[in-house]
Write a protein that binds this DNA or RNA. Structure first.
Length: 406
RNA sequence: GCCGGGUUACUCAAGUGGCCAACGAGGGCUGACUGUAAAUCAGCUGACAUUAGUCUUCGGGAGUUCAAAUCUCUCACCCGGCA
């Protein structure tokens, strides 16, 4: 199958081109200049933000979720609507996640994935679990109506093929950091078998539908915080004909850069690497330095809906009283629609009045803030100033607050 | 004028002798949020101290009692019904 409209080109790297590089991913729906932040629109919408508004933030692509769209409205509806991009009126590139994240989020019930540690995490009661893993796939209990559904690699590929995103992810098992090493080994072996099946099924589906635009498939790396597992899975999946790779999200924050680097050292340099579910500035700097090209995360919109905003001086809650009569923009340095037209006092008012426009305006700002941050990292890689940019940026952002993880 | 009901912290609203500084909700304050079961969640919300504790509160005043938001008397105001 010719990869008609999919390619990845590294334009500039700081040094070793496995790490800190600027490039371009080309997809049937257009290019993505990397490093890039990819906003998440789980259910084929960036919550509270129209595609036009999202476009104005500089977003180059978005990521939706196979699990959610399968349940509602059904991937067949999206397909009949012309595919994800047309269905939701977003003409630019799209990604879909495989549903692998739900193995953890609906299964073990862990609230925290990234920063969790074994001492503070608790197993959810078995009765509340909604996902159950076996070697062949996962049974999900729908969070909408409790009905039982089964995902296998083949099912996930079928859904993602129907959704028609430009970049899809292999079906994986995201494990909790609280699981012991033995379980991580077992789950990783399962993820490997699922990776083979995902790739086989995806290529099979593409041969069956030769007129469909080429869809890229990224393999997903797990392995928790274990160097041997991370390197092993990078070597294993790196030998396969995936178009790119996703680094799975169960990472200890303090060691994020180190863990990512284990994988990027082993993976083929010339393929794009996506870090799943990460968007805190310090984490993004770490990951870009370690060779990550794209990121997705719900944080900018979720945090916005809950009343917090990113600024160059740190993230803070807009609902806080000092904003009540502050008629300055949210971030005077920001060129987004919200910051050029609205004051903190107005946003504070909307949030306290529980007006939905608050979610829209703050989401627009937060998305643009993170998108621009990553775009600026790209520029700094190209002109060679990445390290200085990183140091100065983080010093200001975390200046009077907590120190970023090293 | 008579009879009945009512007056609790910013608001609504539980509580009818001790377990009440007083349930709950809202509001307020603060924080969290990383492949979205999230327009969600957590803590605080009389004062001072904040480990312990001390002090002042349940329309006003006066009583009964070891002990009152809770019982009695009285005053004020509100809502019904009858004149």
């Amino acid at each position: 199958m010719p990869k008609l409209n999919f390619s990845f080109e590294i334009q500039q790297a700081l040094g070793d081109e496995r790490f800190a590089r600027a490039g371009v991913i080309t997809t049937p729906h257009g290019p993505i200049k990397t490093p890039a932040f990819i906003p998440v629109g789980t259910k084929a919408t960036i919550k509270a933000v129209t595609p036009e508004q999202l476009d104005a933030t500089g977003a180059q692509a978005l990521l939706a979720n196979a699990y959610h769209l399968y349940l509602q409205p059904g991937h067949n509806i999206v397909e009949r609507g012309g595919g994800l991009s047309k269905f939701m009126n977003w003409p630019k590139p799209t990604f879909t996640d495989s549903g692998g994240f739900q193995v953890l989020s609906l299964g073990s019930g862990y609230k925290k994935v990234l920063s969790m540690d074994a001492a503070t995490s608790m197993n959810a009661p078995v009765s509340s679990r909604r996902a159950f893993v076996d070697d062949n796939g996962v049974n999900f209990k729908s969070h909408l109506d409790g009905s039982i559904h089964r995902f296998t690699p083949e099912v996930s590929m079928g859904i993602q093929h129907a959704l028609g995103a430009d970049i899809c992810f292999a079906f994986d098992e995201l494990t909790s950091l609280a699981e012991p090493y033995d379980y991580q080994v077992e789950a990783l072996a399962r993820t490997h078998r699922w990776a083979i099946r995902s790739l086989d099924e995806f290529r099979h589906l593409q041969h069956q539908a030769p007129t469909k635009p080429y869809q890229a498939l990224f393999g997903v790396l797990q392995g928790a915080n274990f160097e041997d597992l991370r390197r092993q899975t990078a070597q294993f999946l790196g030998r396969m004909e995936f178009d790119g790779y996703g680094i799975g999200g169960a990472l200890e924050k303090a060691r994020l850069g180190e863990i990512v680097r284990w994988t990027t050292e082993e993976l083929p340099a010339g393929k794009p690497k996506h870090l799943l579910g990460i968007s805190e500035p310090d984490d993004i700097f770490e990951a870009v330095a370690a060779g990550i090209d794209t990121f997705d995360c719900v944080s900018p919109t979720r945090v916005a809906r809950n009343g917090a905003a990113y600024t160059l001086d740190g993230r803070y809650n807009l609902t806080a009283a000092p904003n009540r009569a502050n008629f300055a923009p949210l971030d005077p340095n920001c060129a987004c629609y919200t910051c050029t037209n609205y004051t903190r006092a107005y946003l504070h008012h909307l949030l306290h009045a529980k007006e939905r426009l608050a979610a829209t305006l703050v989401s627009i700002h937060n998305e643009q803030f993170i998108i621009k941050l990553v775009a600026d990292m790209r520029d700094s890689i190209i002109d060679g100033s990445f390290s200085e940019f990183r140091e100065h940026w983080l010093a200001r952002y975390y200046g009077s607050r907590r120190q970023p993880a090293v």
